[in-house]
Lab assay of single mutants.
Amino acid sequence: MDETGKELVLALYDYQEKSPREVTMKKGDILTLLNSTNKDSWKVEVKITVNGKTYERQGFVPAAYVKKL
């Protein structure tokens, strides 16, 4: 869990989004878990840094590609 009590997951593999509802992640990324009720895909939040500014983006990733921490 992070400092706000949200559950975290670790990306086990790289994943490139295939639709606007998904998010891209790299192996080793730590993501905030938002919903894990679907056995196939979990909703997560990723933090992306562009030019020194951090943005948050929500979307789905394959459940088999992440592990709860």
Rank of each mutant, 00 (worst) to 15 (best):
V50D: 07
V46C: 10
D2G: 13
T32H: 09
S41G: 05
E56R: 15
Q58R: 10
G52N: 07
S19I: 04
E22S: 05
E7K: 10
L31C: 07
T4Y: 13
Y15K: 00
Q16M: 13
V46H: 08
G28W: 05
K67R: 12
I48M: 10
V50Q: 10
D2L: 14
Y13D: 07
K68G: 04
V9N: 00
M1H: 14
S41C: 15
E7V: 14
V44G: 00
T49K: 09
L8W: 13
S41M: 15
A64I: 11
F60S: 03
V23R: 00
Q58F: 05
L10V: 15
V50T: 09
L10D: 01
K47Y: 09
P62D: 04
V23W: 05
M25T: 01
V44K: 00
L33M: 02
L69D: 02
G28V: 03
K53D: 09
E56A: 15
E17G: 15
K68H: 09
A64Q: 11
Y65H: 06
E17K: 12
I48C: 12
V44P: 00
V66I: 09
K26I: 07
T32A: 08
R57T: 06
R57A: 06
V50F: 10
L69N: 01
V50P: 00
L33P: 00
K43C: 15
K18A: 10
Y55S: 09
L10P: 01
D29L: 04
T4D: 12
W42A: 00
G28I: 04
P20R: 07
R21L: 14
D40V: 11
P62N: 05
V44N: 00
G52S: 05
T54P: 07
E56P: 12
N38Q: 09
V9Q: 01
A63V: 05
S19E: 09
P20A: 10
G52M: 05
M1D: 13
M1S: 13
W42P: 00
L10E: 10
E22Q: 06
E45Y: 07
T32R: 14
N51G: 10
Y55N: 05
S19G: 11
R21F: 14
Y55R: 06
S41Y: 15
G52R: 02
Y13K: 12
S19T: 12
W42R: 00
T4C: 15
V46D: 00
L8S: 07
D14W: 05
L31K: 00
E45Q: 13
K53T: 12
T37I: 08
G52C: 06
T32C: 11
L33H: 00
Y15T: 01
M1E: 13
E7T: 14
T49I: 13
K27V: 06
A64P: 06
K6E: 09
K27N: 03
K18T: 11
V23Y: 02
L10Y: 10
Y15F: 06
E45M: 15
K26G: 03
K53L: 13
T24N: 05
E22L: 03
T32F: 09
K67L: 11
T54Q: 11
T32S: 06
S36F: 05
D40P: 02
R21C: 15
K68P: 09
P20L: 08
K18C: 11
V50R: 09
L31P: 01
S36N: 07
Y13A: 11
L69S: 02
D29M: 12
D40K: 12
V46M: 10
T4V: 14
N38D: 14
D14T: 04
T24C: 08
K27D: 02
L31I: 07
D29W: 11
I30T: 04
T37A: 11
E17R: 14
K26N: 08
V50E: 11
Q58N: 07
V9H: 05
V66W: 02
Y65I: 07
G5A: 14
R21S: 14
K47R: 12
P62G: 03
K68M: 10
T37V: 08
L12I: 09
K18L: 08
E22C: 09
E17Y: 03
T32K: 13
N38E: 09
I30D: 00
K67S: 09
K53N: 11
Y13V: 12
V44R: 00
V23K: 00
D2E: 13
Q16K: 12
K43L: 15
V9L: 10
G59M: 06
Y55G: 04
T4L: 12
D29T: 06
E56S: 15
K39I: 10
D14F: 06
T24W: 04
V50K: 08
K39A: 13
L34T: 03
T37M: 10
V44W: 04
K68A: 07
V46G: 04
K27I: 04
W42D: 00
Q58T: 10
D40N: 12
F60A: 01
V9G: 10
G52H: 04
V46E: 00
T49D: 07
K6P: 13
T24D: 03
L33Q: 00
N38S: 11
K6I: 11
E45R: 10
E7G: 11
P20M: 08
G5C: 15
E3P: 14
G28T: 01
E45T: 10
L33T: 01
T4A: 12
V23T: 02
T54C: 13
F60D: 03
R21G: 15
N35Y: 06
R21M: 14
T37S: 14
L12T: 04
K18R: 13
F60R: 02
K53S: 10
Y13N: 08
G5I: 13
V61K: 03
G52T: 03
L69C: 14
K26W: 07
V23G: 02
G28L: 03
I30F: 05
M25C: 07
E7N: 12
P62S: 04
Q16C: 12
T24Y: 03
G52W: 04
G59N: 00
P20K: 09
G28C: 10
Y55T: 11
L10G: 00
V46W: 06
Q16Y: 14
V23P: 03
N35K: 05
L34I: 15
